[in-house]
Design a protein around this nucleic acid. Sequence first.
DNA 1: TATTGTTATACTCTATAACTATA
DNA 2: TATAGTTATAGAGTATAACAATA
Lengths: 154, 154
Amino acid sequence: MTQISSPPKSLSVDKVDTSYLQTLIGYNSRRAALAVISVFMERMAAFGLRPVDFSVMSVITHNPGVTSRQLCSSLNILPPNLVGLIQSLEAQGLLERQAHPHDGRAVGLHPTSKGVTLMKQAEATASELEMEVGSKLTPTQVQTLVHLLQKIYL
Amino acid sequence: MTQISSPPKSLSVDKVDTSYLQTLIGYNSRRAALAVISVFMERMAAFGLRPVDFSVMSVITHNPGVTSRQLCSSLNILPPNLVGLIQSLEAQGLLERQAHPHDGRAVGLHPTSKGVTLMKQAEATASELEMEVGSKLTPTQVQTLVHLLQKIYL
DNA sequence: TATTGTTATACTCTATAACTATA
DNA sequence: TATAGTTATAGAGTATAACAATA
């Protein structure tokens, strides 16, 4: 370990100033995402779902027959990282893989009735959390926030 | 591998609908953060800084004498994960560790002149990027977005 | 030749337990 | 007893290269 120089040539910091970082959209959106998602994780643990599991199952439920490649594109997941995830959800009986109607390479992903039931509850829970988070804001502000965020990444 | 059932009982999906996920603040803020930060990473690579290095050096530069513990609290980093980071920045000659004026356990972190110079350029680059990202929004919208995000996580 | 799904693997990030030196 | 800094390590997340089957 490097030796600490001495004597001290400055005073201590009482309150840390992060005002510069707080001007950055990337910093603020990351901090907000982490704050919301940490609570989201706690709630979804009751369903055995991580955030990425929730996203994948949500897209499959709303888009029966969607392919792995389409999931990767829409959720920004790399194909190799989706494989184990799909296998796990299939093993849990939440989705089924079916032959794609007109592409022998692809596989259509379909929610099972168990998956549909679970996601109905999970999405209801997510929407509840959304209202809690949104309670820090007015309904209009929530709408504005979502709209502005989408202008950034879409 | 599980056998794929047949025959297919559904059509293929042409356009993936992610409208439900897009109602969630957590989902949108995460996607926005990833989009902005990926560009941020490219720009900061020129300075040899990852996002977390930038954040740490920025706080140290604006708060000379700040302790590791204070850094951890303000940036939501776990102490064990900060150790190697600080050592690396010190090895690069960007910061110095000095005895804390009135706490023998703590160490004050100070930017070197090299660190100050680097951060001046890095923050200028970050602010340039901020304007580019912000060009998708009006200046008022950027201000609104930042304000709303802070209401979520602060 | 290009694309889908897959395997193997490496790398980074994040988290937990436990230790020391000092308050 | 509590806190700052540290060590070791485990786990999760993310990334690239390469392959077989199909378009």
